[in-house]
Design a protein around this nucleic acid. Structure first.
Lengths: 225, 225, 225, 225
DNA sequence: AATGAATGAGCTTTCATTCAT
DNA sequence: TATGAATGAAAGCTCATTCAT
C-alpha cells in the first residue's frame, strides 16, 4: 500500500483515493478530454473524438471512465480540484506578509490556471452548467468551494494579523475573484470580438487589481464593492 | 383589459381572437425560444420544448420557422439585430454632448439589453458559436457589426466635435464594450457563484466604467487600454 | 334527379354514381393532381402542392377528396377508367371491318391516351404500384380489366365474323397492348437516355405494329407470340 | 461446406467468425438494400427496414454507410457501376466477329443484369430519379455513361473492321439499348399485368432484336431507326 | 487490459389530415 | 363552401454506452 502523498490525504481519505485512482488512468485521455471540452464544450465533445485524440479506442475510454460525465469530473479534478491540496499546503508554508501572499496568489493563479487550458473549464461550467446540474454541483463543491475557502483563510490571516481591517470577508473574496473571472471570460470570448482586438496584458491587469483590492482591505478602509 | 385593436373585433369576437392568435403565434414562439435558448443553450434546446412552452405542437413551430437555426436567427433579430434601426435613429436625433451620449448609450444598453434575457443570446454565441458557424456568422454580421458601427459613429462624433482627442477608434470601441460584455457574462454565471456572492450593481458599475472610458477619451489624453 | 348519361349507367349504377360525383368536383384539382402525380409520382406529390396549383387551399382539397389515395383514384377515373363507357359505346357503334376497328383503336389510343399526360398514370402505377396495393388493385380493376375486356370484345368480333382465325384471345390482347406499353414507357423514360436521343415516331410505330398484329390474327395464321 | 479462407480461421474459429462477420456486414446490408430498393423504391424504403432485413439495428447501417443516399450509391456500384472494369476487360479480350460480340453482349447482359434484381435499379432511377437529382446524376455518370461507352467501342470496332457500315453510332447504341430497357421495364411491371399475360421469353426476344439491330448495322445498309 | 462492432434512445424535420372559424 | 392553423406519426441520422472477443 503506497503512502499518501500529502498530509491532507489522511484527513480526507476519499479525496486522496480519487486522486490516486486518477493517477492510474491514462493521462492522454485526460489531456485529450481537456483539449476538446475546452474547445467544443461538454455536450458537443464526442467520446469517440476524445478516444481518438488520445490514441485509444472508444471502448478503452469507457474502461477508465464509466461515463462522459465522470470523464469530465476527472478532468476537473486533474486540472483544478485535485490541486487544492498542493495549493493549500503552499499557503500553509507561506512566509511573508498577507499582502504579498495575496499578490502571489493572484499572480500564480494566472500562471497555473488563468493562462492555461484549465481556465476553459470554468468558462465551460458557465456556459453549460445549467444543462448538467450534476456537473455544476460537482464543480461548485470541488472547485468553487475550496477556492473560496483558500481565499477566506488568506484574508482571515490578514485580518488576524492586523494587516487588514475588519472587512466583510465574503465581499473581499469576491473582490479578488472578480478580476480573475473577468480575465478568464475575456480569454475565451474570441467569438464576440470582431475587428478591435485590443489586448489586455493579464499580468499587469492582475497586478493593478491586486493593489486595488489590497487598498480596499487595508486597515482603515472599507471592503471594495 | 386592452381594447380590441380593430372595430370588427367587437362584431366578430371569435374571428378576432383567432386572427390575433395567428398573428401572435410567432411572437409567442419567439418568446418561448428566447427563454429556452438563454436557459439551456442552442444545442440543448429541443424544438418540441419550445413549441410546448408556446402552447403549440411540434409541427406548429415548423409552420412558422423552417428550422431550429432559422428560429434562432429570428430570436436574434427580434431581440437584438432588429433594433438597430431604432437605436441608430435615436443616436441621430440625440442632442447634447458626445460624453452624455456615451453615458446614455451605456445606461440605456443595460436597461434594454444587458439586464434583459436578450443578453443571454450574446453569452450563448460565446459558448456555442464555434459549434454553429452559420449562426456565429449571422450574429457577427447582424449584431456585432452594427453595434460596433454605432459606437464608432458616436466616438467619431466626439472626435470631430473636438470633445475627444484623436484616439484609436477601435480601441475606444473596445473600451466601451468590455464592461458591457463583462456584466453580461457575470449576469449569466449564476452557476459558478456559490455562497457569498456580493452582487455588482450594474448601473453603478457601468456609470463608473463610463467615466473611466470618457477620461481616456478626453482631449489631451491617450485612448484607454 | 338527372337522367343517366349513358346506357351503361343503368347497368352499372355504382360506376355511374362515381362518375357523376366526379363531375361535381373541381376539375382544377383533378388537373393539378394529374400534372403533379405524373411529374413527381404519387408519394412525392404533396397534397398542398396540388391544392396550390389548383388555386385552392389545402383544406378544400380534402373537402372534395377524403384522402390523397381517393384523389388519385379520381384522377384515374377522370382520365382513364371513366372513359371506358364512352369508348365502349364507340366500339358498339363502330361500322366497318374489325381490322379497321383495331387499327382505329390503336391510333385513337395514342391520340387520346398515349400521347397525353394520362399515360403517365400507367407509368406511375408501374413504378409505385407495389407501395400502394390498394391503388394498384383499383387500377387493375378499373383500367386494366376494362381495357382488356374491350380488346377482347374487338378480337372476338373478328373471330366471330370470320375475319380472324381461331386465335388464343389472351395472346392476341397481349400482342396489341405490348407496343402501347412500350411507347408509354419510352415516353416517360427520359432519365435513362443520355446522349442518344433517337426518336421513335409513335404513329408510324403503332401503325406498323398494328399491321404486324393483324397479320398474326389473319385467318390462316397462328397468333403472334 | 466452404473451406475457411484463412489458415488462422481454424486456429481461432470464433475470432474468425467475428472477423468474417464484420467483413460480411456491408455485403449483407447491400443485399438487403438491393432487395428493398428494388421492391419498394428509394423513398419508400426505410433505413431501419434495410437494417432489420440484414439482421442488424438501425445504428449499424449508418456505421457502414453514412446516409441512405450513400447506401444506394453503394448498391449501384456493387451491382452495376463496379462491374464495368470486368466487362470492359472481357470486351478487350473478345476474339471473334463484332456481330458475335454484340450478340454475346446482349445475351450476357440479360444473364447478368436484366434477369437479376440489379435491373430493378434502372427501373428505380426511371421512377424516382427526378426526385433525387444527386442519385440520378450519379447513376448517369457511373452506369449510363460507361454502358454507352462500352457499346460505342463495340460498334466502332465493327465499323473499323468493315463489318458494319458507317452508321451513326449514337443511333446504333440506342437501337441496342432500347430492347434491353423494354425488357427491364416489362419485367418489373407485374403490377399492371392482370390475368392473361402471355410472357415474353427474354432470351428469344433479345436474340431476335440482336439480329434486327445487326441487320441495320450491316455494311450496305443504313442505321436502324 | 483493449478493442470496435453493435445498439437504440433521442432529436430534427416532413406532411397527410383535421377542425374551428 | 372554404380556409389555413394545428396536429402528430414517422423517418433519417447521431452518439453515449455495452459487450463479445
Amino acid at each position: 500500500m503506497p503512502a499518501p502523498r500529502f498530509l491532507s490525504d489522511k484527513l480526507f481519505p476519499e479525496r486522496a483515493k480519487r486522486a490516486r485512482r486518477k493517477e492510474a488512468r491514462p493521462g492522454e485521455l485526460l489531456e485529450a478530454a481537456l483539449d476538446l471540452f475546452v474547445a467544443k464544450g461538454f455536450a458537443a465533445t464526442r467520446a469517440e473524438e476524445v478516444a481518438a485524440r488520445a490514441g485509444v479506442s472508444k471502448g478503452t475510454l469507457f474502461l477508465y471512465f464509466p461515463s462522459k460525465e465522470e470523464l469530465f469530473k476527472a478532468v476537473v479534478i486533474e486540472n483544478l480540484a485535485g490541486r487544492f491540496t498542493e495549493w493549500n499546503a503552499e499557503f500553509e508554508a507561506f512566509e511573508g506578509s498577507t499582502s504579498d501572499m495575496l499578490r502571489y496568489c493572484m499572480r500564480i493563479w494566472w500562471e497555473r490556471v488563468g493562462s492555461t487550458k484549465a481556465s476553459g473549464l470554468t468558462k465551460l461550467m458557465l456556459s453549460e452548467g445549467s444543462n448538467f446540474p450534476e456537473l455544476a454541483q460537482f464543480y461548485r463543491e470541488e472547485v468553487v468551494r475550496p477556492g473560496h475557502a483558500l481565499l477566506r483563510r488568506i484574508i482571515q490571516r490578514g485580518i488576524d494579523s492586523g494587516e487588514f481591517g475588519p472587512v466583510d470577508v465574503d465581499h473581499a473574496i469576491y473582490a479578488v475573484i472578480a478580476p480573475m473571472n473577468f480575465l478568464m471570460l475575456w480569454k475565451h470570448s474570441a467569438m464576440v470580438c470582431v475587428d478591435a482586438d485590443a489586448h489586455i496584458d493579464p499580468e499587469t491587469y492582475l497586478a493593478i487589481q491586486a493593489e486595488t483590492v489590497l487598498h480596499g482591505l487595508s486597515k482603515p478602509q472599507e471592503a471594495a464593492a
